[in-house]
Amino acid sequence: MNGQIKSTQSKLKDVNKLLKLDPGNTELLAQKHKLLAEAVGETKEKLATLKTAAEQANTALANGEISQEQYDALQREIVETEQDLKNLETQANQSATAVQKIATAGEKLKTTGDNISSAGQKLLPVTAGVTALGTASVTTAANFESSMSQVQATMGITKDSMPKVNGQSVNTMDTLSKLAKEMGVETAFSASECAEALNYLALVGYDTQQI
């Protein structure tokens, strides 16, 4: 069991290392979420086994079959495994949030261009397992302005940035703000939620034209 956990953690470490170089890579994000789910499952299984062993150890200690030192070591491993599980579940929740938001952005905003749906399509199979794991937790944006400020920060642009969209020079923030408000009217999401979705498209690497 420890061998399985060690193998999963090694893969997760490699993925996290690559994500530092390419944080918007949807393939890596999908792999990370899958590995976290596996790690949570494996650690839960280990904890259940340890607790069963602890019940047996109580009798073994009373009968003098194991030493107090061995019994104490088992109890410490149970506590350590509980802490590992809690940490993994926290990471899995954070991963689930990011995965679902990117998938939602790709699917719900596909009316603005077929190529933006790729992020959603790639991660939809992953999101199917999120609900089953009970780890999904998607929060709404605090407000529209702060969400749009985050979009600007993610894209690394100034307020007066003027890229070309459909052959015409436009102000990025004005254009994207208008888009988020229009989608707020046309979809079941609020303008702030649409602005947050734009941020995840920006995080994946889309420019103003693609968004």
Rank of each mutant, 00 (worst) to 15 (best):
S137W: 08
T111P: 01
P23D: 08
T49D: 13
N87F: 15
L88M: 13
A105G: 09
E77V: 03
Q56C: 07
A48N: 13
S147D: 02
E193V: 02
T135R: 01
L50E: 10
A96G: 03
G3V: 04
A92Y: 02
E107V: 07
N2D: 14
V126L: 13
K6A: 15
K11G: 03
C194H: 02
V99W: 00
Q83W: 14
V130L: 10
T127S: 04
A191K: 01
Q168D: 14
V126W: 03
T43I: 04
Q83R: 13
M183T: 00
A103F: 10
A202H: 00
G106S: 07
N25K: 02
S192G: 11
Q68H: 06
I5D: 08
Q56N: 10
N93W: 00
E27T: 15
D14Y: 12
A73T: 12
A92M: 04
S177K: 02
N115Y: 10
Q100E: 14
A98P: 00
V126K: 05
E145N: 14
A60C: 09
F144P: 06
T111I: 13
Y206I: 03
K164L: 04
S146R: 06
L179E: 09
V138K: 07
F144G: 03
V126Q: 06
L21I: 04
A202K: 00
N63K: 15
S190A: 13
A197W: 04
Q209N: 15
L74I: 10
C194K: 02
S118P: 03
K159Q: 12
D72F: 03
K181A: 11
E193C: 01
A188K: 14
N93V: 06
K110N: 07
A39S: 15
A60N: 12
G41W: 01
V79M: 05
Q94G: 00
K159N: 10
T175I: 01
Q9F: 09
L85D: 01
A48W: 11
M155E: 03
T140E: 14
S117W: 10
K6M: 15
Q4M: 08
T90C: 03
G129S: 12
N63V: 09
T97V: 02
N199R: 05
L176I: 06
K32D: 04
E69M: 14
A105W: 00
G24F: 05
V79Y: 11
A142F: 12
G134S: 13
S177N: 05
K110F: 08
K178Y: 09
S7D: 10
T97Q: 05
L19Y: 09
F144K: 07
S192D: 14
K110S: 11
Q94N: 05
A142D: 15
A188G: 11
Q121D: 14
T104Y: 00
D84L: 12
E186R: 14
E193Y: 00
V185G: 02
